[in-house]
Every structure is written in structure tokens, then in C-alpha cells.
Design a protein around this nucleic acid. Sequence first.
RNA 1: GGGGGCUUAGCUCAGUUGGUUAGAGCACCUGCCUUACAAGCAGGGGGUCACAGGUUCGAAUCCCGUAGCCCCCACCA
Length: 890
Amino acid sequence: MIELDSTYEHKSYEKKWYDYCVDHKLFHAPVDNTRKPFTILMPPPNVTSQLHMGHGLGYSIQDLFSRWQRMKGLNVCWLPGTDHAGIATQMMVEKDLEKEGTHRRAMGREKFFERLTSWKEKYGGMILDQFKTLGFSCDWERLAYTMDPKLSEAVRHVFVELYNEGLIYRGERLVNWDTVLQTAISDDEVESKEIQGILYFYRYPIDGSDEQIPIATTRPETMLGDTAVAVNAEDERFKHLLGKMVRLPFTNRLIPIIADDYVKSEFGTGAVKITPAHDPNDFEIGKRHNLPFINIMTVTGTMADNTPAPFKGQDRFVARKEVIKQMKALGLFDEEKSYKTTVPHSERSKTVIEPRLSLQWYVKMQELAKPAADAARSDELQFHPDLWKKTYLYWLDNIQDWCISRQLWWGHRIPIWYCNACPGVTTGMTDPTACQECGSKDIRQDEDVLDTWFSSWLWPLSPFNWPADDKKDEETLEYFNPTDVLVTAPEIIFLWVARMVMANLKFKNRLPFKHVYFNATVCDKQGRKFSKTLGNGIDPLDVIAKHGADAVRFTAISLAPLGGRVKMDVDDFDNGARFVNKIWNAARMVFQHLEPNQQLPRIQDLTLTLSEKWLIQRLRETSVKVDTHLVDYRVNDAVEEVYHFIWGAFCDWGLECAKIDLAAGAKPADKLRALSVLVYVFDGALRLAHPIMPFVTEELWQKMPAHPSWGPRPVSICVAAFPTAEMIPDFATDAAQWKTIQDIISGIRSVRSQMGLSPKQELPAHIRVDASLAAVVASASDWIQRLAKADKVISGVDVKRPGQSLTAVGQGFEVYLPVEGLIDVEKERIRLSTEEQRIKKILVGIASKLDNQSFVDRAPEDVLEQTRAQRANMEEQVSAIIRNLKALEA
RNA sequence: GGGGGCUUAGCUCAGUUGGUUAGAGCACCUGCCUUACAAGCAGGGGGUCACAGGUUCGAAUCCCGUAGCCCCCACCA
């Protein structure tokens, strides 16, 4: 026999087989133009991040696709890597500095950058080791990092190219200012939150008049930067005030009352204070009316020096209260109302965004967005599920220019040099030494760095040695790009997915991938997203330690429908563990009859039994279904198919039937035949399960003798052929016959169980069968005996009902179990008549359908035929039951 | 405010172009330690498919409306 531990000890096998595959370079894809590549990009996790269930799910799916395609013979490159994650990483180190009582500014840019680099070396990328514990088959030889020299070069190349084309420009605009991180952030890093705020009502005095104009605002402190009051031109209340000036309290500036359509008379007071430097709408109005822009806020969100005492230097929220206090003192305050409003917050620091006028670098997006949108419109680019297409298109069709400069130190520094002697700006692939306009050597580089996404949007290109230095680089890119499928979270459809599409189209004139699979968001049982702050997450490392990686992968994938959400609980992982255990035990059953490296006959050379043919047929069908489901990105369906095949078909029927031939006294030839079939099918089952559960399948497959019908055996199951219909014999007819035997067995079991017969009580089974089934049933008596606890089986077309019997009725057969004196006849009578009623009820429904002339006229032929056959079958069953009822009563 | 989605068994969810008696896993009930597995085996109960209309020979599936929940986008002071 083949030795096998009595339970699956994942810790003894996982690392062993992972290292084995890496050592054999099975996860590495060299450029090889004789083989078809399959490329899948790992969404690079932040260097700072730790493994969480979101990775557990999304990346398990990527590994599933990778392993499946690898087994189908493709040269699979699952490209791993990390993202330097500008803001997130800098925040982390800044927190450390704070604890040490220092600050990056005190440290200086260079030192701070060094500190970050060494921090990254030490702690960054821990997540990649965590990926290994889950068995992810990445091509580690191509590991990339967004700040690698080569990838940084790509960033610079793209910047320079876009700049030279005029697609990158510097502009003074209102940006989303994060007062905590002291940087601008892009629109896509802002999240709106509904907040219970206050709407304040106060008045501004009109210059040269006793009149006052009423104002409503949620942000009184911005009045210090007001440069107009706007009303609707049609508003009768204010018409006479148009063109007059307001004397702005505290600053005493005179500001005009203007008319603008933006103002809705019915809202608030109908008059709006205009602060062009601190509100997006006011900014637009300011531009329309040529108003001055007065920036009254510092980078930290305190009132700037151009504001009067007592506000100067106060935090914006303190100043808000102070303004109200002072307005009250001036007798200009009316009231405040509680007011629900949405306020933009920084995704990173969670602070309230301060719209602030500042000079930043932008990418013109419209031109880039158009082809990206067209690709989705024409379905050349497909989303799974496809409902994301609308979202994607809406964003692209309404795209805003992308603010790419960040006032941070961690990241790719903007390759722009300003001249101190002239307004000239210089850029290029190498650092310039002189201004390209005037030749002055007095130049300085822009202080800012680029948005992190400005490097990640090149992920389909830059890790593959783009831009190419030589022929080899060029080949690499051409081989792997375009990639095959992107698996990622819907949250970053704009931030990342759409931008990669734009970049690849712009620089390679083709899509980076044609399929995007959006995996589900992982939530707790209450449907709340897993989050650190809530502490409702499940740590995959804990679950792996408890159940093993295979159980985690299986559970995660089987819970995940396409898109949407997956509600997850720690206990769910018990299912995965149970399944792994089941596979392990099935192996123990088979292995105890095998010798290591035992020679087995080919399936093609054997005369197989009905149940064996059925089992092989099930393997064949399962292979097709699994493959089809994976092609359709229906990963949970694929997993379910494997699960039911192994548990329901292989274990519950295959192994149980085989026990007859494996029993101590069985004929050696039968035993060998049965073993050959079991090993053959189990090998196939392990192959089907391998992309989901790499470790248990590898351990068992390596121990199991090679089966000649699977052809030459490679070094690992991860490069063994994925089963297809062509590889497996077709036994469709035999399999259908075996289903009748299963019905007979299940029928007997059901009757026995319902009648409360002890499993120990053996009964003869008398089976009357239709002529067409007689031979098959006759040949199946061993199985019926064993699996239905019959001590004797008598079957044939004219088998008669023995005296007092229990009855099981099915399509084409009636089984009688003589129980003279063993059971309560009344009980059986009730059971049978209940069954009769149940079938009759269904029959009524079917009959009324067939009596309906419209149905008969309009239903398609196959539906009609089906319905008629069904009626015939039901009628037959009812009459059989009635016959037996009568016999029982006699 | 705009867009999208969801509502099916006690729980979590499948149900692909409308067509057999609506499925799975877990949970539950009954009986079994049958020498791979009690993390198991066998059997069983449980659903007017959110509600109200409509289209159709036929609707969980298509259309309209209602209610509840969720997500995304959005500059109403």
C-alpha cells in the first residue's frame, strides 16, 4: 500500500511543493515565440499593505486562471509586483517620525527619501511572501516595483512625451486640497460624505444705503475671501440691487452684486456669496465675471495672513465659529438651520477637502479618453460582469483633466526644471543643466512628485521592459502585451483600469487586455465591507494557519459570484477544510490498495463495468463543464462542478461501487481493473481541482502511480494536461443505463428508511423491469445487493409482487421488498397514498396544459413532446402505485 | 439629483436566450461508528421566487408600478 498520513497536515506539504515548483521554474514564462503566452497582470498591492481577504479572493481567482491556462499548455506569466503608493507610504513613515518627535521638513528631502527607501526594503513587500503562502503561481523572475529604475524610466518617458505633445500642462486651478497631507489630490481620491451641517443666515450691508442683502452659507469663514454676491437676474427682490456694491464686513472691501444664472432664487435667500478661490462653483462664476481670486487659506487650512484679526492664523473650523460670533456682534446675523449636506473628504487622510486655488500639473484627458471609450462601446473591451461598461463609459465621456502633481516627497519627482532667469521650462529624458529657452544654468527642478497612478497606469507596459532599449526588450513587450485578462476590484475602475486602457492605446495603439473581470467585494455577514477601522475583517493568515491554503482558496472562490458582494464568515472556511479532508480520505481509500509506482493497465484495454463507465463519463462531462465555466468567468460554478464531481460522483458512487471489486476475496483481475479506473479518474479529478487547490492535489498526485492513459507524466501536476473531452472515452449510453440502477438503489433506500427498517435488516429485492432494461438490471445485482442492503436480487419482466411488500416505483421499474410481518402495513399504505396524491397533483397540472388547445398549437414541438412523455411516465407511476395499494389491502 | 444593482428554503446564494415537479452548500429532523472520511454515510422536512399589475399557450426569468436594502457618480450656496 501507499503510505499516507491519516489526516491532511497542510503545513508539511505547502511550502515543500511551492518551493519545488519555483525551483523547477514552473511559474516562470520565458519569452518563447513557439508557445502561446497567457499574461495576467497582478494588480500591484501597495508596498505597505498586508494580506487581507480581498487579496485572498481576487488573487486566488487570478491564480485559478493562471494555473488552468498553464495546464492547458500556455506559457503563463502572472506578473507580480508592488506599487510605491506615494501617499500611503509617506503617511506611514511620517507617523513613525512623529513618534520620534521629528518631521520630514526638519529632516530634509534627501534624508527623508532615504528613510523611506530603507523602510521599503525592510517592511515593504511583506505581502509578496504572504502571497506565497496562498500558493500563488506568479512569475517571480519578473517581479516589478513601480519605482524600479526601468519602470521609473517609463514614467519619465511618458511624461516627456505627453509634455512635448502638449497633453501635459501646468495650470492654476481650484484643486482638492488635503490640509493634513498638504497636497493636492485628484478628483478620484475624494469621497463625498453626507454630513449633518449647519446653514447660516446673515446679511451684508449695501454700500451707500441702509439696505442689507441676506445670505445663506454653510461655510461662513470663506466670506473673508468673497469677491461678489450673486443673485438671479430674474429675481424681483434683488433686481434693484444689481450693480450696487456690498461693504464686506471685517475686510471692508467693496464687492459687486452681480447676476448669474447659476443662482436659484428659491434656494436659501436667493443671494449667494461668491468665493472664487475656495469653491468650485464660485470659481466658475469668478471666471465668468472676471472677479478677483483671493486665497485666504494656508496649506494647513488656517486663515492666511491676508485675513484680518481675529481670524488670521485660526484653523478654518475655528474661524467659522468666530465669523458667526463677530457677525452676531455686528447685528448682521439672523439664524442657523440644521442642514444635511454632502462634503468632500480625502480618501487618505479622511479630512475635509479644502478647495484651494493652486498651480498644478495636469494631463489633458479628452483626447486619451475617446479611444478608450470607443473600445468598450464596440465591445472590443469587455467587462465581466458587463454592467460596469456603463459606469466606465460615463466616466470617460465626462472626463476631467487629471491633476498629476502631488506635494509629496515619496514618488517620481516631476521631471521639469524652471529657469530663474526666464519663464522657460525644461524637460527631457536626462536631467538638464541649462534652460532650453535662454541657456541659463540657473535652473531648479519642480519640488513635487507625480501621482502614484501615473506609474501604475503603465503596468501593462513598463514591467515588460518598455520603452525598449534593444531588440530583446521589444520582443518581451510584444510577447506579453496585450495581456489576456485583468482581474481586479471595481473600486479602481477609473483610478487604474480606465487609465491603463488609455495608456496602452496611446503608446502601443492597442488594448492592454480585452477582458476585465471584476471580483466581488468581501463583506461581513451584515454586508459591511471588511475594514481595518471596523475590525470586522478575517485575517487570511489566521485561516491559512488553521485550515491550510487550499481550504481558504476553495472557500473564497466558491463563495464568490461574478461581481457583487460576498458575505463571509470565519466558519465558512470549515467547508473548504471539509472538502480538502474528503479528498484526502478518498486518496487513503484508493492508496491502501496500491503499491508505489504500481503498473496499471490502460483504460482502453479493459472491459469496464457499467458503474465504471458512468464514472468516467461523469469525469468527461465535468471536464467540459469546468472548462466552459472558466471560459465564461463563472468561477464559483466551476468550483461547484469540481466539488460535486469529487464528492457526489467519485466518493459516494465510484468508491462505494469499487469496494466490491477491492474486497479481500475479489478476483485479482477485477481488483486491478477497478484500481486502474479509480486511479485514472482520481488523477483527472485532481487535475480539475488543482487550479483551485494546488497543494493537496500536488501531494496526492505525486504519491499516486502514473496512469498510462494520461500519457507521459510531467514533474508536477501544475503542468499536467487539464482534462478535456478528447482525452476521455465517451460512455454516454452506458452512463444513462447506470442512472436507472442508481434510481433503483435510491428508491429502495428511500423506502426502507421511511419505513424505519434497520440498515442491518437485509431483504430480498424483487424487481419488475421493462424489457428494455431487463439485461442491465440483471447485470447490476451485485451493486443493488451491496448498496441497497438486499440479500438477494430477483429481476425480470414478469417478476410478480410477493405477498406483503414495500414498493418503490420509478421510470421503467417497480421494486418489491417482501416484509411479511416486519412492518406496519398501515404505514406503508399511508406512504403510498401520499405518494399517489403527490404525483396526481403534478399530473393534473400537466394534463391541463395538454388539454389547452393554445398550448398544443403554440408550444414548440420539443416542449410538447417532453410534456407528453412526462404525462405518460407519471400516469404509469400512478397506476403502479394504485396497483400496489390494492395488493397491499388485499 | 443622476445611474446601476439586489429582494428565491432558517442562513448564504445559484437559476445563462421564458419551457420537465425552482436548485446547491450550511443549518434542521430521522436512522446508521457499513474496515477512506462521524469533518462521515443513508434518508427526510422546508420556498404562493418582495408586493401589485401586464405581455404570453407558458413568467423566478420579459415590461410597468410600489416598497425595502445596497453601490457608484454628482459643485446647489
